[in-house]
């Protein structure tokens, strides 16, 4: 029971980063391998607000989220849009965006190392027990997953309940057809990419309240987000949320029953099973 609840709490926060990547890959068609660095940057923001300003880490969202949005919008317009335009095929775009975002990922890590140094950073926030069904859990984890659930809910409403959200979904399904009904595909793509980056940075704030991080840990979260997105099915919000919960559970089970050093192996096992048996995602429709 402990494992179940811990796993679900972890999974809820994972869903945030997965949705960020899903927006970028599913809509803007960019496999953003620098996604994890955006998360670490968000976490840095929260760390700075808490230690230097002695404010609640969540207040960092006030500047982290708009900042990440603007930065990712710029990245898409300046660096990625030219690649989209010059690509002759989907495959070529994939290769180029992978290389370019790898470049960004390393460049971000390099810059963060320069600015913050290579040490671990962690802070103690709401580190008091909170009882669920009689067992104690870190209050910070509970609050973090609650915040994640709220953000996911807002996003769900945004994507399914607004006009812009409808345009985003249209581009996700078919960019060519979307442009035929007068949707400005480059604008919607840039918007989704920026939104994805902002969500990921928000995820960084949330995760930083209970995880220890350093400048080069981003790639671990990129991996997890990628595995979740592929498991959930590209562009499928509901699938991403369920996949996050599955991953959170699997990691917790392996960490508490076998060895905490094997969490990645657990994620990989899931990934492998998905690749072998359902490469189109848990709820994806098999293509013929």
């Amino acid at each position: 029971m402990d494992i179940l609840i811990t796993g679900l709490l972890l999974g809820a926060t994972y869903s945030l980063i997965a949705i960020g990547l899903s927006l970028q890959y599913g809509v803007a068609r960019i496999m953003n391998l620098a996604n994890g660095e955006m998360l670490v940057a968000g976490a840095f923001g929260a760390f700075w607000v808490f230690t230097a300003q002695t404010l609640s880490p969540f207040t960092a969202a006030l500047f982290v989220v708009p900042g990440a949005f603007a930065l990712n919008w710029l990245i898409y317009r300046v660096l990625l849009r030219p690649l989209v335009r010059r690509a002759k095929s989907r495959g070529m775009l994939e290769v180029e965006t992978i290389l370019a975002t790898f470049g960004m990922s390393f460049a971000f890590v390099g810059i963060m190392l320069l600015v913050f140094g290579g040490s671990y950073f962690t802070y103690s926030y709401l580190a008091e027990p909170y009882r669920i069904l009689g067992s104690p859990y870190g209050l910070n984890r509970v609050v973090a997953s609650a915040v994640a659930v709220v953000i996911c809910g807002l996003l769900y409403w945004g994507v399914h309940g607004t006009r812009t959200g409808m345009a985003i979904r249209a581009v996700a399904v078919d960019p060519a057809a979307a442009s035929l009904v007068a949707i400005d595909v480059p604008r919607v793509s840039a918007l989704s990419f920026a939104l994805g980056g902002a969500v990921t940075a928000a995820g960084g704030i949330v995760l930083s309240t209970f995880l220890t991080m350093d400048a080069s840990i981003g790639v671990v979260f990129t991996m997890k987000a990628l595995i979740i997105v592929i498991m959930g099915g590209v562009g499928d919000v509901r699938g991403a949320i369920i996949a996050s919960l599955i991953l959170g559970l699997a990691e917790t089970v392996v960490a508490s029953l076998i060895d905490p050093g094997l969490t990645l192996a657990a994620a990989y096992l899931l990934f492998l099973l998905v690749l072998l048996f359902r490469p189109e995602g848990l709820f994806g429709r098999r293509q013929s």
């Binding site: 660096l79 030219p82 690649l83 180029e96 290389l99 370019a100 790898f102 470049g103 960004m104 990922s105 390393f106 460049a107 971000f108 890590v109 390099g110 810059i111 190392l113 320069l114 290579g118 080069s216």
Partner: peptide, 20 residues
Amino acid sequence: PTQTVLLLGIAFLLIVYLIP
């Protein structure tokens, strides 16, 4: 020694944008 990561990043970007 801490800037090898930055070098990797710059090299990747260079390859994609200037010498594909």
